[in-house]
Design a protein around this nucleic acid. Structure first.
Length: 324
DNA sequence: AATCCGGGGAG
DNA sequence: CTCCCAGGATT
């Protein structure tokens, strides 16, 4: 949960999650949809699937134990070098380093590393340095101390050098570079992509959404709960689609709103078609009752006749051709 | 090596 | 708005 997510944000999710799945066995026995539901709002939903799969793997292949073995952990999907170090240094006092956003900042500043530590030689330097400075015992505590220093004192902006126990030995501070180290990561360039989605909601109302560009749409494919936002007005392609939907006997509105599925409140009877051109490939599917279904899976699923007709039209591509 | 994933917090 | 967050998989 803590990957790329601030601690304060995670806490309530963590507590809910452990209340629902108090043990490794409970998590392993859970349905994936239930795991995802508790993750809803946190983002990076692959983490939830990986965690769930890892729990099952540990129960099946390791008797439900947490092995004192880096190779076993590294073999789990979703577990990288950071997590191996974090888990084993804290659970078994293994002398393994961790590098994340906080320790990265602390190390780069302390040793005056002016290169980009996120790649190339800087990456190697970072992990080697993190390992070099490890104590022989209480490794987990040390790792956490470095992170805590980065989170509370050696902050990204306006570091509190006056409060830092390492200030007298800090190279960046000595050179007045504490604000410019580490160098910011290079910004990714934005690629224009046309994307269209249709959501049919309970009560025969249709929400029409078209979002050009931003790329923020991808989350719909990963896990749609509460993820779809629409602020732009529909364009010509979207309006053509609206006319086609109308011809199918469905009420259409161009009302733009934020879709909050609110799975806990009311049962959702809707279909969502997402269409996306990505790397030349075309993917589509349906979102029904909080589940993501492929066209094949939609077949036996109980939906209304108008919805099924619309779904078939969409799959057959008469709508898709109007969009791209 | 570059890209993608998903929100929210803070300035 | 921008930058950042107890990273990791994929291409």
């Amino acid at each position: 949960m803590l990957q790329q997510t601030q601690v304060a944000t995670v806490v309530p999710y963590f507590e809910r999650f452990l209340a629902a799945f108090p043990t490794l066995q409970a998590l392993a026995a859970a349905d994936e949809q239930d795991v995802l539901r508790l993750w809803e709002g946190l983002g990076y939903y692959r983490r939830a699937r990986d965690l769930h799969r890892a729990a099952r793997q540990l129960v099946l292949e390791h008797n439900g134990d947490l092995p004192d073995d880096p190779d076993v952990w590294r073999g789990l999907s979703g577990v990288g070098r950071y997590m191996v170090g974090a888990i084993l240094s804290q659970a078994f006092d293994r002398r393994l380093p961790i590098v994340e956003a906080n320790s990265l900042r602390v190390l780069c500043r302390f040793f005056g590393q002016t290169g980009d530590p996120r790649r190339g030689p800087g990456q190697r330097w970072l992990w080697e340095t993190a390992e070099d400075i490890l104590p022989r015992t209480r490794v987990g505590e040390f790792n956490q101390a470095v992170m805590e220093l980065g989170a509370l004192v050696c902050t990204p902006a306006k570091p509190r050098c006056g409060k830092c126990p390492l200030a007298s030995m800090c190279v960046a501070r000595k050179q007045g570079l504490q604000e410019t180290i580490p160098v910011p990561p290079t910004k990714p360039k934005v690629i224009e992509v046309r994307e269209v989605a249709v959501v049919i909601r309970h009560g025969e109302r249709v929400l029409l959404v078209q979002r050009p560009g931003t790329g923020r749409w991808a989350r719909m494919w990963e896990f749609p709960h509460g993820a779809l936002r629409a602020k732009e007005a529909p364009d010509d392609a979207a309006l053509r689609l609206a006319r086609e939907l109308t011809s199918l006997g469905v009420e259409v509105t161009d009302e733009m709103e934020t879709v909050r599925h609110g799975v806990t409140h009311h049962r959702i009877t809707m279909i969502c078609l997402g269409a996306r051109k990505r790397n030349g490939a075309f993917r589509s599917g349906f979102y029904v009752d909080s589940r993501w279904l492929t066209p094949a899976e939609l077949g036996p699923y109980p939906i209304s006749a108008p919805q099924r007709l619309l779904a078939r039209r969409l799959v057959e591509g008469s709508v898709q051709r109007n969009l791209f």
